[in-house]
Design a protein around this nucleic acid. Sequence first.
DNA 1: GTCTATAGACGGATAGAC
DNA 2: GTCTATCCGTCTATAGAC
Lengths: 194, 194
Amino acid sequence: MAEDRHGTRGRIQAVALELFAEHGYDATSLREIAERLGVTKAALYYHFKSKEDIVRSLFDDYAREVDELIAWGRRQPATAATRRGLLDRYLDIVVRRSGIFRFLENNQAAMRNLESEGTKEVFRERMRALIDLTREPDAPLRERMRASLAFTAVHVGWLFFQDEPVSKDELRAVVYDIACDLATAPRDAQLSTS
Amino acid sequence: MAEDRHGTRGRIQAVALELFAEHGYDATSLREIAERLGVTKAALYYHFKSKEDIVRSLFDDYAREVDELIAWGRRQPATAATRRGLLDRYLDIVVRRSGIFRFLENNQAAMRNLESEGTKEVFRERMRALIDLTREPDAPLRERMRASLAFTAVHVGWLFFQDEPVSKDELRAVVYDIACDLATAPRDAQLSTS
DNA sequence: GTCTATAGACGGATAGAC
DNA sequence: GTCTATCCGTCTATAGAC
């Protein structure tokens, strides 16, 4: 699960993310992280200046990756193909770094209390930028909500249905299909059909 | 925001939910709850035997309401109209008790660590039951995922777009529309159109 | 880079008076 | 039903040896 890294610093990040996602940020103490690593708390403080600094370092990796995606999206023409490419690439990120997405989904309240400015807004701001790339900012509410749900569908679809007896490729395809449907301008709703 | 109640016990529940939703469950101390109420910690312990007991009491109210909805759904024929009625009524619950839904969305990790069995699964189990009412349990993955996203759309749509400059009635209508679209058997996807 | 030891704060929970 | 006072545990973070 944890994307193992080289060096002690990377191992701390991997183990911390694992525990944060498993038991929650608040409920995970530095003692637990140190014990699973086979070192002491004080050793962690050599690599990170605080508990919050650890989570901040995890955010930075995530933010850099999504920022690149946003930059890519801004270079493309505003077509349906671009929107699908955006979702496709976003899905790649979620698949590859599912640990941090699971963590973010489950610890929103804990993240809101962080001291360092910027950290708490990292998630929300990137989401907003992605939605704006999928729909014009002044599009009607219904369209912006559907665009927002396209990304939510990527999170929920990939993370909640991990235990399904289907291959990861198939799961990914289903998620992609549903997300594209949401990101695509809707046909007239035919709600009265059975 | 807090649905004010009569009696000290009810006031504790209202203030606790307010603070839990605002700062998170772990980050909210009994001292804070007591201070906002103008009483002492010990007074809380007269009404609730522990911090977890407070959150448990909040869950009970939510669970009872959703259980009634599930029971209603099971009495209805499995038609498209029933599915829409399910979403309509579920939306009513989310609108009326948005406090606890916001809390649940933001504190999933904290809830996972609760001692008392049942409490942590309350949310997930009800969700599963609602999805099964909207789609057959053995429906293809794509259909179950869309059904699941219909309810997620109700949460996200209502809670995330609260600040939009539209009336609550209009917001509710948009959420309902999108959720119904997800809960309705899809037409053939037309992904290649612009 | 990692250790032991400890400071200092705050949390949940209880005892017992009123 | 609410209070004061307190116990006891755990946490983050630091100091200083190796």
